[in-house]
Nucleic acid binder design. Sequence first.
DNA 1: CCCGATGCTCCAGTCGCTGGAGGATTTAAG
DNA 2: CTTAAATCCTCCAGCGACTGGAGCATCGGG
Lengths: 146, 146
Amino acid sequence: MKGLSPTKPLPIGTLARTAGVKVPTIRYYEQIGLMNAAPRTESNRRTYGASDVRRLKFIRHARDLGFEIEEIRQLLALAGEPDRPCADADAIARQHLADIDDRIARLTALRGEIARMVDCGGHGSIGECRVIEVLADHDLCDHAHH
Amino acid sequence: MKGLSPTKPLPIGTLARTAGVKVPTIRYYEQIGLMNAAPRTESNRRTYGASDVRRLKFIRHARDLGFEIEEIRQLLALAGEPDRPCADADAIARQHLADIDDRIARLTALRGEIARMVDCGGHGSIGECRVIEVLADHDLCDHAHH
DNA sequence: CCCGATGCTCCAGTCGCTGGAGGATTTAAG
DNA sequence: CTTAAATCCTCCAGCGACTGGAGCATCGGG
């Protein structure tokens, strides 16, 4: 009866590997209160369980998708009380959606421009190179992003 | 004969407004050597000309498009010697193109997901809300970006 | 039993700005 | 002409989101 712990505790390195983040990042998340303080072993090592893996994956995924820490904090809080109306989570996500549409639009415009730049192929001197031109002239977008 | 200076010198604030950056940003760019040190008036104010406007717009545009300072520095250096082969500028741009395709792909995937999340519409509790779910489950992208 | 991997804490650095303090100057209004 | 507001200057500190190093303790496989 020793092989069946409720879910055996993982050290930080393993958690880091399974969630795809670096070890210091986890400690950082703990420090800013995004992950809760892990219980420690006798010898002061952090121990994690399955729920921590889930939470960290959630965080990482959200970060990867461009959510900021504060937004993630909100999302996690929301997830914590499962009978609140999903309108709040929605609002955050919707806001984000708008952002993302904007970013995609900008990046797409960019893509076009850079593609055109690169089409200068190999015709010699920078003088005629579109890369410089395009960046120089054009006033594409005026608004500060974010 | 006083109204016809070769291009009348602008103070930093005006430059900032015309290029669409904040004043401290310009001073920062000077500090890191991205803008060259502006000549000063008697009373130590920076003065700028048309070429500075162009350069700063170039920088801002490039930044806006996601180029990093170092890349911009290279681009500017390249632009400075107009008989170098455009292959170098090309290489930078191409590298960037790959990045951007990646980012667009990721953002598009994200857009889809967030759109789906938001489609949970208003059906009550977070328990059933896709926002949380989607973020929690899915392992969409593994690689660290950049 | 030893040594390399892993863990710990603390602290400093990264990038690209941004803002404030505290002072000097310039400019527009009255 | 005088004043008040705007703009400028320098210096320095802080942001977000990590990242990495120093210096030490501890763990686990050969």
